[in-house]
Simulated assay, not measured.
Amino acid sequence: MPSVSTHIALTLAAHVDHVFGVMGNGNAYLLDALARHTDTGYTAVRHEAGAVVAADAHFRASNRIAAATTTYGAGFTNALTALAESVQAHVPLIMLVGDEPTPARARGTSTRSRSPPPSAPAPTPWAAPTRLPPSSSHSSTPSRTACPSCWRSRTTSPPSTPGRSRPSPGLVFPNRSPRR
């Protein structure tokens, strides 16, 4: 029994001769069906916007409709600017965006349900930076900061200004200079 992806691939092959895209888990079955059941060409590109631009250019150069395909979520979002350009230029193309695979939803590991239930407290791994105790001087003693992402201590030396003492910055952010 043919799958939904096979039916879509066969219908698509009746109207286009080439597909441009970035393979992801949302469109993998479609691209597999295109390769196995049709003679439609496929060109892999490095970015989702490049898939739409390539389909746009294919039409402008050959006057034949092409398709672009990306995966769901950020893959589709990355293609929107190029898709808007094609719409403004009245270039016909087909944009296929896959959805999250069904087995992931059945297992309960869906990417759509990443937020905790309303009764649970929200986790905060990116909480406010660690407040350091005030120090009297920024001489040659390095200050210590805690990295919230890996919970390791890092040693940083603040910039020194000759002849000028500054109060402690209080909050210390890794890879940032203290505020004056």
Rank of each mutant, 00 (worst) to 15 (best):
A146H: 08
P118C: 04
P123C: 05
T71R: 01
N25E: 14
P142S: 08
L171M: 15
D56W: 00
A33H: 01
D56H: 03
S110C: 07
S140N: 15
A68D: 04
A67T: 02
S110V: 03
T155Q: 07
F173K: 12
G170R: 07
S143F: 07
P101A: 09
Y29R: 10
Y72M: 06
F59H: 07
A61T: 04
P103T: 06
G26P: 00
S136F: 15
R180I: 12
N25G: 14
F59S: 03
A104N: 13
S177Q: 11
A66P: 00
V91S: 02
T6C: 10
L93C: 02
T70W: 02
Y72A: 07
G108N: 10
R64E: 10
G163W: 10
S5G: 11
P117N: 12
T40S: 07
A14S: 11
H7F: 13
V16Q: 02
R114P: 08
A66C: 06
G163R: 06
L34V: 04
A67S: 05
R105K: 15
R112K: 13
H90N: 11
V52I: 06
G163T: 04
T102Y: 12
Y42A: 01
S3T: 14
L34H: 03
P92V: 02
R180D: 15
T145W: 09
A35K: 11
G73R: 07
A82Y: 00
M95Q: 06
A28Y: 03
I94S: 01
D17W: 01
P142K: 06
N175R: 11
F20A: 01
A9K: 04
A66G: 05
I65R: 01
L83M: 05
R154Y: 09
S5I: 06
S168H: 12
C147V: 08
Q88V: 13
P101R: 09
D32H: 12
T77R: 08
